[in-house]
Design a binder for these strands. Sequence first.
DNA 1: TTGAATCTTCAAAATTTCTTGAAAGATCAA
DNA 2: TTGATCTTTCAAGAAATTTTGAAGATTCAA
Lengths: 183, 183
Amino acid sequence: MTTPHPSHPAVLLAADAVGDVIEYWGFRKALGRVWTVLYLWDGPLSAGDIGERLQMSAGAVSMALTELQRWAVVKRVWLPGERREFFEAEVDLWKMIAKVISERERYLARGVRERLEQAGKMLAESGSRVKGQQEKLEKLVSVAQLAERVIEAFIQSRMADFSTFTGALVEPEGRPSKARRGR
Amino acid sequence: MTTPHPSHPAVLLAADAVGDVIEYWGFRKALGRVWTVLYLWDGPLSAGDIGERLQMSAGAVSMALTELQRWAVVKRVWLPGERREFFEAEVDLWKMIAKVISERERYLARGVRERLEQAGKMLAESGSRVKGQQEKLEKLVSVAQLAERVIEAFIQSRMADFSTFTGALVEPEGRPSKARRGR
DNA sequence: TTGAATCTTCAAAATTTCTTGAAAGATCAA
DNA sequence: TTGATCTTTCAAGAAATTTTGAAGATTCAA
């Protein structure tokens, strides 16, 4: 076994801070840490590199990378002549935000709205004097429906403004991103 | 011990759905359930009532009510001639959202921004060739600062639009909420 | 094929979070 | 005061989540 090479303390501190953000959004802290180490490093890293830097087990790294790729925040990179897989951070976080809202939050909103609607039906069928409850439940259903529409609209729109926001993370070298001289 | 009187299944279903929403926002599911039972019921309920309806222990109800009051989503009500305390749901959820953003999210944002800044300093002092990392870290700091400013601005503004949103929960009776006669 | 290097999976262990229930603390009528 | 009723606190237990580590799968050079 080789000597472990943990990252510079500054990198670990930053990784932990980003981990807290991502944890607040319902992911495991480790995902944020791994992404940060990849983001701060110039060039791709292997799973083993990441494990060393963050002192994580191979299994934990593998699972973190799998999930990060599922959310499109990390991409797999092929390096010629290398058996191992390498990874690098996706800087366009808008991709991730859109995906999470589209898959996770939309799913939540739909489930909640459906259950509230069903509760409304159940109450209506139960007959007994529950007029007040029914009206309140209607209100809840309205809010759920509104939230769902907001989410749908959010997904529909290209969210140009948000691209600006997360665009702040692109590489410092400032390579042209769109219509600047060829590629 | 008296026979338990759980809520109507429809109410429990709705309570659970709201519980999921609140859980997604980082609170315990029980808080959402308690709020929903209070919201759907016409009039105030005692802690014992809530425990019966949701089949929760007295301790759990007490803790849930304490936290709900801390976030201003439930208010204590005094009923003449009653020894027990009663509670009812606060319908203006904007109060809660503002409080959570102001206390919890602002705190998170500040902590993250500070740690990223410190990481930047550490990297700068370390001397060695970490130019690329420093630049990337600067980007992260910028995003954190931006997020913090957005949160501050959010808190500053009265958020009139959001009141409209959450205003949808006010009592169906549609009594004027501001210039109510007397009282 | 074989074997070395690497990756993934998953059951068990560790950790974190939540709930319970009983004891202590309040409150109030008598 | 006393006793009855109700609330809060908190340690212990239960439950849920996360991490580990090792077995098995995969990949590729030889």
